[in-house]
Write a protein that binds this DNA or RNA. Structure first.
Length: 298
DNA sequence: GCGACAG
DNA sequence: ATCTTGTCGC
């Protein structure tokens, strides 16, 4: 009975999605809009957020969407929201937003309504911003729909517009010697789409940072570096750790016994979290991140 | 048949 | 994204 989100959507749907991306792309602001973004120490910045979606191992439809807010510059968790969701759209490279975004937008709206004072001033998104097939990745999408500054952080290079993870690219990576070092990622059109960043001294594999919304690439890269205690920016890392933990706890209670004795002690209590406010599986959203028209099934 | 492929 | 143990290093 459970609808599986498999198979690639019909061409017709993909065309719809492309039209939507093109339409929303016009609203992207790829420059600094806040005073703290220009400040050398980011003074004025107090809260940074991160979002992520983790999956249940044998069910492409079940996942846990999480939104966390950390203090800056301490990077301590102030807020955490994890919720199980049912994904309807399949994953198609270039259309990640249509699969994961509805739930993340919901999470932001809930925060805005229940704890407005904890609203993050910038959001780190797992995935790309303008470094995308059509210049509108999930970080841009989330930024436009929430009107929050967003930074796209991908763990792998999306090979678009002439960008390739080839020998030359690898040579450039070798030249990144210290945390904070980076080099531009230029698309075929000569435009800089993002930057490969060595997030800290002891990390060899770079992060691919690109503008999502309302922040310049320079500020995005600098802030990303300043939020890395490890390779992955702390906001996204915490969202990831907590969402997987949430799933693990859920699987333990009614199903799998107790695999190994995990070492996920990394989760402490945030000052606020809508955990107790149990309602429905929180799957109000449908197919379109916009919430506009409805594209029911695949 | 082979390479690509954010999460 | 997820499947997976040990292992090398600070």
């Amino acid at each position: 009975m459970a609808r599986k989100a498999a198979g690639k959507p019909p061409e017709e749907i993909l065309l719809d999605w492309k039209r939507e991306q093109a339409s929303l792309k016009a609203r992207v602001v790829d420059r600094d809009t806040e005073a703290w973004q220009r400040d050398p120490a980011f003074s004025g910045l107090q809260r940074v957020g991160g979002v992520d979606v983790s999956f249940v191992k044998d069910d492409s439809g079940s996942a846990c969407a999480s939104l966390v807010v950390l203090s800056y510059p301490e990077l301590e968790v102030l807020y955490e929201d994890c919720r199980m969701v049912t994904l309807t759209a399949p994953y198609v490279s270039g259309f990640l937003a249509f699969r994961e975004l509805p739930f993340l937008v919901d999470a932001v709206q809930q925060l805005r309504q229940r704890e407005p004072r904890l609203m993050p001033q910038v959001l780190f998104v797992d995935g790309n911003g303008v470094l995308h097939h059509r210049g509108f990745g999930v970080a841009c999408h989330l930024g436009v729909l929430t009107d929050l500054p967003c930074i796209g952080v991908a763990k792998k290079l999306l090979q678009v517009d002439g960008l390739e993870n080839n020998a030359l690219h690898k040579e450039k990576i070798q030249l990144l010697k210290a945390g904070g070092d980076s080099f531009p990622l230029m698309g075929g059109s000569g435009t800089v789409l993002g930057r490969a960043l060595r997030s800290h001294d002891h990390s060899t594999k770079p992060l691919y940072v690109s503008v999502g919304h309302k922040i310049s690439l320079e500020a995005a890269v600098r802030l990303t570096h300043s939020c890395c205690k490890f390779r992955i920016p702390e906001p996204v890392r915490q969202a990831d750790i907590r969402s997987r933990d949430y799933i693990r706890r859920t699987q333990e209670v009614q199903g799998v016994p107790a695999p190994p004795s995990g070492r996920s002690k990394e989760a402490q209590r945030p000052k606020a979290c809508p955990q107790g406010v149990s309602e429905e599986p929180a799957g109000t959203s449908k197919g379109t991140p916009t919430g506009g028209k409805a594209c029911p099934r695949f």
